[in-house]
Measured scan of single mutants.
Amino acid sequence: MASQGTKRSYEQMETDGERQNATEIRASVGKMIGGIGRFYIQMCTELKLSDYEGRLIQNSLTIERMVLSAFDERRNKYLEEHPSAGKDPKKTGGPIYRRVNGKWMRELILYDKEEIRRIWRQANNGDDATAGLTHMMIWHSNLNDATYQRTRALVRTGMDPRMCSLMQGSTLPRRSGAAGAAVKGVGTMVMELVRMIKRGINDRNFWRGENGRKTRIAYERMCNILKGKFQTAAQKAMMDQVRESRNPGNAEFEDLTFLARSALILRGSVAHKSCLPACVYGPAVASGYDFEREGYSLVGIDPFRLLQNSQVYSLIRPNENPAHKSQLVWMACHSAAFEDLRVLSFIKGTKVLPRGKLSTRGVQIASNENMETMESSTLELRSRYWAIRTRSGGNTNQQRASAGQISIQPTFSVQRNLPFDRTTIMAAFNGNTEGRTSDMRTEIIRMMESARPEDVSFQGRGVFELSDEKAASPIVPSFDMSNEGSYFFGDNAEEYDN
C-alpha cells in the first residue's frame, strides 16, 4: 500500500469516517454492505422474486439502478423543472426478469421514488447511507470498465484509444464523492478537466460571474484530485501550473494530454476495490451473516471469500459463452479491467482472455432483445487465490505491452514486471518541450526514458491461498515475461453508450 500519510484510507472515504482504527473501519464497511443486503432482500420480497430470480444479476442491476435514481437529487430536480413526455419524475423502474413456464419473461416495473427511498433508509437504520449508494455506483463503473473500451470518449477529448488503461471510473457520476474520486484513473480526471476547458473556450461566460466562481472551485478541486494521483514531483508541479492558470485554454489542454500520456509509464495511484452486485450481499445477509459484527474490507480476502460461497446467475444470449460472461463479471467484481492478464489468470486459476476474444456482450439486456431465446446460467466467480488490492500504480518500471492497449494499471499487489510499449508511448511525445512547463516536461520525458521494462514492481508481494486469511504465506508467482498482458488488445469491444 502506498503510505497513507495525511490521506484517509478508502474504507474511511467509503464510510465518510473520520480517523478510525482498522477494526472500526471493518465494522463501518460491514455496516454499509449489510445495509445493501437488507435493502436487496426487501426489494425481492416487494417484487415477489423467487430465490433464483433474486440471484439473477440482471435483476440486481435494475434494483441497484432504481435506488441510485431515487437518490439522484440533481436529476430529480431537473426532471421536475423540465417535464418530458412519458417520463414521470417521481417514478423509477426498469426490467425485471421472471421464469414463467420454463421461459424467461421481461416485466417492466415502476415504483415511486419516495417508496424506494423509504425501503433503502429502513434497511440502513434510517440513514441515507450515501456510502452504500456510492458502492453500487463503483460496481456499475467497474462493470462498464470491463465491458467497454471507451474509444470515442478518448478520441473526443484528444487522447489515444490505446490509453484505455487510464480510464478507470470514466462512467462514474460526478456525485460519487471521495470514494469515487479515489477509483478514477488519470485519464478519467484528464477527460473531465478537458471537457471543462473546452467549454470555457467555447463559452465566454463559463468562468464568469457567480456560476463561474463555482465552476472555478470545481476545476481547482479536480486538479488537486489529479495532482494527488501522480507520484513524481515534476508531474505534480505541472498540475500546479494547470490549476493556477488564470484562464484555462489550449496550453492547459496540451499540458493535460501530455500528463495523461506520461501516466502510461509514470503511473498514478488509483484505488481498486472489489464492489459486488447487491444480489451477492442480499443472500449472505439472508443466511444470517452479520457483516457489521464480522467486519468487512473491500481490499482484502473478504470479497473473494464471499464470491467463493455465492451463487449468481445471468441471462445468456443464444451465441454467448457462459464462461466468457463469467470472466467479464469476475473482472468487474475485482475492479480488474486494466490489470495484467498474466496476473489475473494466476489468481483466477483459469486463463483470462483479452476482451476481443470473449464471445459475450454486456450483462444488460436491451429492451428490444428477444426473450424467447434467452437461457440462463451460473456465473463462475470463484478464484484459485486471493491478493491484496493496490492503491498505487506500482513502481515506475515497465515491460512490453500489446498493440491495442499500451500499458496497464495494476489492481493487485503482486510481484511482476509491468508491461508497456515504450516505443509507441515515446513516439507520441513530439519533443515539444517549450513553453512555461518546459523544464517539467524535459524531466518527465527523462524519467520515462530511463524506466526499464525488466524491473520488478511490488517486490516480494504474492497471492494467498483462500485458507490464508491473515495473509501469512505469500506465494510469489513467476510470469512468462514475453507473454501478452493487455485486456483490450487489438480490440473490438462495443462502445459504451450512456
Rank of each mutant, 00 (worst) to 15 (best):
G5Y: 04
M13T: 15
T15S: 04
G17K: 00
Q20Y: 10
A22L: 09
T23P: 13
E24A: 06
V29G: 06
G30D: 08
G35T: 11
G35P: 01
G35S: 07
I36T: 11
Q42P: 08
Q42S: 06
Q42W: 07
Q42M: 12
D51G: 05
D51H: 05
E53P: 00
R55D: 10
N59T: 10
I63T: 11
E64S: 04
E64H: 14
M66V: 15
V67R: 02
V67N: 09
A70T: 15
F71I: 07
N76I: 14
E80F: 06
P89R: 06
K91H: 00
I96N: 07
Y97F: 15
R98I: 13
M105G: 15
I109G: 00
D112L: 05
E114A: 08
E114D: 12
E115H: 06
I119P: 02
D128E: 14
A129W: 01
T130S: 12
H135A: 15
H135N: 11
M137P: 01
I138S: 05
W139N: 03
S141Q: 03
N142T: 07
R150A: 00
A153G: 09
R156T: 05
G158K: 02
P161H: 09
S165C: 11
L172Q: 10
S176M: 04
G187S: 12
G187Q: 03
V190A: 15
V190G: 07
E192V: 10
L193M: 13
V194Y: 02
M196P: 03
I197H: 03
I201L: 15
I201N: 08
D203C: 03
R204E: 02
R204F: 05
N205W: 07
N205T: 06
N205Y: 10
W207C: 09
R213L: 09
R213F: 07
E220N: 09
M222F: 05
N224L: 09
N224H: 14
K229H: 08
T232F: 12
M239E: 02
E244G: 13
E244M: 06
R246Q: 09
P248W: 05
E252D: 15
T257F: 14
A263F: 04
L266I: 15
L266M: 13
R267F: 05
R267N: 06
K273G: 03
V280Y: 01
P283Y: 08
G295E: 13
Y296I: 05
L298N: 06
I301A: 12
D302N: 14
P303I: 02
F304S: 11
L306G: 04
Q308F: 12
N309R: 15
S310I: 03
Q311I: 11
L315M: 07
R317F: 02
N321E: 02
S326V: 06
Q327H: 13
W330M: 03
M331W: 04
A332R: 00
H334S: 00
E339W: 04
D340T: 02
V343F: 03
F346T: 15
G349I: 02
L353T: 01
A366K: 09
T373E: 04
T373A: 14
M374Q: 06
S377V: 02
S377K: 01
S377Q: 05
R382S: 10
S383Q: 10
R384M: 15
W386S: 15
A387G: 15
A387C: 14
I388C: 07
S392P: 00
G393N: 13
G393I: 01
N395G: 13
N395F: 14
T396K: 05
N397E: 14
A401H: 10
A401D: 02
S402E: 09
G404Y: 03
I406C: 06
R416A: 01
N417G: 13
L418V: 15
R422F: 11
G435P: 03
T442P: 01
R446S: 13
M448Q: 03
E454I: 13
S457C: 07
G462Y: 01
V463Y: 04
E469S: 05
A471P: 07
V476L: 13
S478L: 11
S482Q: 08
E484G: 09
E484A: 09
S486E: 07
D491R: 03
N498M: 13
